[in-house]
């Protein structure tokens, strides 16, 4: 019954009219993300020593299909080591305009240092501002470059426009806290 099916469909749409919308008024209300959402990268640290997990091996850069990652390594200063072991990433940059958030870097990382987090609000004006350096991605840094710039301007803490379903980020995102 072709018409009956149309009627059924009409019934469905009418029924949905009286349901609560699943989307939210995003900037004012926080969007609810699944923890598995893949957003901006986080460079994690070892929980005990607080040393960076990244050892500057460039495997993420090698795995990156978009050539978005640039790594320059250097020798650790034994007095103040940045990472365990002898090598650390002196320069670690990701061009977020090139990044396709495929997660290959995460997969390639031998130490679990680079993990795709849940932050996604990175819109900005100049293309050079999309190159995220290590200090923009290390765990503990909340918000993207424009968000932090805005927060500094207003003198308020960074406000992230999302919350996690379940409240907890993925286990790989060691030490990352989202509101």
């Amino acid at each position: 019954m072709g018409v009956l099916e149309i009627a059924k469909g009409m019934g469905v749409t009418l029924g949905k009219l009286f349901q609560k919308p699943v989307t939210v008024s995003y900037p004012e209300q926080r969007a609810t993300l699944q923890p598995r959402f893949r957003g901006r990268h986080i460079l994690t640290r070892h929980p005990g020593t607080n040393l960076e997990k990244c050892i500057g091996c460039s495997l993420c850069a090698a795995a990156c299909p978009a050539y978005a990652i640039y790594v320059e390594a250097a020798e650790n200063d034994p007095a103040a080591p940045v990472s365990p072991g002898e090598r650390y990433a002196k320069v670690y940059e990701i061009n977020m305009l090139r990044c396709i958030f495929c997660g290959m870097c995460e997969e390639a990382c031998p130490t679990g240092a680079v993990v795709l987090g849940n932050e996604f609000e990175m819109a900005d004006y100049r293309s050079r501002d999309f190159v995220y350096a290590k200090e923009d991605m290390l765990v503990g840094v909340t918000g993207s470059i424009p968000q932090r710039r805005e927060a500094t301007r207003l003198g308020k803490p960074v406000r992230l426009g999302f919350q996690l379903d379940g409240g907890q980020p993925r286990a790989e995102l060691e030490g990352v806290k989202y509101p």
């Binding site: 070892h46 005990g48 020593t49 040393l51 072991g85 130490t111």
Partner: peptide, 8 residues
């Protein structure tokens, strides 16, 4: 390092 590295 001072602390054992997990999955080091």
């Amino acid at each position: 390092p001072a602390a054992p590295q997990p999955g080091g």
